[in-house]
Design a protein around this nucleic acid. Structure first.
Lengths: 186, 186
DNA sequence: ATATATATTCAATAATTATTGAACGATATG
DNA sequence: CATATCGTTCAATAATTATTGAATATATAT
């Protein structure tokens, strides 16, 4: 997890660039914390500071990495909505821009992560509630097994309630309800 | 990231155990999504269903893994507050129990992750605001460099505002303010 | 205090994930 | 339509992370 701060990126040449490198490192560390590849986090940081659409080629240059890796990075970042592909192109090259408003980035990143969690968990839980209930209701189920199933059923029902709540939470998040008074989308 | 559902864990022997394995897999996938080692996520899942304090030895048995790895797993889970070490012991052995209330687990997990993010980012940003401002104010700074510094300064100030907001968000989360009407701590 | 059971750390290895260059495919341009 | 340019995928390798068993440390009971 520890990595030399500037890694293979081009050496900082001014005080300002040194500052950028430090902050980009913190951003990458943070994103790594949430399961994003450190280098991909760095790329977000670069796009954040550049604050203009960039092509894969430019990313390749500033990260000093292969184009294929930049392609993977950009896909990962667009999947989690922190970066988006523009409609316009620079000649034949695709353009990508970072969401530079941290409030919006928070909103997009967590909404997409949490939604994925809801989907994965719901897909696992919903289909097993019925069979589990049936086992409990079945006459041939042993006393002991029934007790265990009941325990599990209640855990799963609790989980279902939690994911219903979490879905509402995500809806509110997407709605911007947690950002009252903040200049989101300034 | 893909893994055979039951991996090295002991084979499920009943319908109920099959269900547990599926749900534990979903839990582990979910936690993996947030950067938690998949096996450690499985361990949380086991503790979640067992719903009783377990010793390292028992974890070792049900996960079919080394005690040292269980030690690391338990540390990772206690760090993120999803599991806690009890004050009592089973003879000489330490006991650990999972937070089985998903609302509380959410609260604890995200509060600790987000707080860490705030700390990392704040530690990077706060100390560079002054030097950056000074560069802008300095007479010898070139027109061009001043422009670039100004842009960066504004980005960083935006970030500071964001992290102030995020700190309040975390405070509310820890306070339970997002769980109104939910039976957290039932 | 000493012996003994348990927990943690460490260094080696296994397993996984990140990164690359080359091949392929798609898209735009003349 | 042919060609050039770019983006994606694939299979190989590099780098990192997960897992282990042994060594060390910590704590408990006698």
């Amino acid at each position: 997890m520890k990595k030399s701060i500037s890694g293979k990126m081009k050496e900082p040449s001014s005080a300002r660039e040194e500052i950028r490198v430090k902050v980009i490192d913190a951003i990458a560390q943070t994103m790594d914390l949430y399961g994003v590849n450190y280098s991909f986090g760095q790329l977000y940081g670069i796009l954040f500071f550049e604050d203009r659409p960039m092509t894969l080629e430019e990313m390749q240059t500033s990260m000093n990495m292969s184009k294929s890796n930049m392609s993977y990075a950009v896909r990962s970042l667009t999947d989690s909505k922190m970066v988006s592909k523009l409609d316009e192109k620079a000649g034949r090259q695709d353009l990508y821009a970072a969401e530079t408003d941290f409030f919006k980035a928070f909103q997009l990143f967590f909404a997409s992560k949490l939604q994925r969690e809801i989907d994965v968990m719901t897909a696992a839980i919903k289909p097993v509630i019925e069979p589990l209930s049936e086992t409990i209701l079945a006459l041939e189920t042993s006393e002991e097994e029934r007790k265990l199933c009941l325990q599990d059923l209640h855990k799963l029902r609790h989980a279902v309630r939690y994911y219903e709540w979490l879905q509402q939470f995500v809806d509110k998040l997407e709605d911007g309800q947690f950002f009252e008074g903040q200049q989101i989308g300034d």
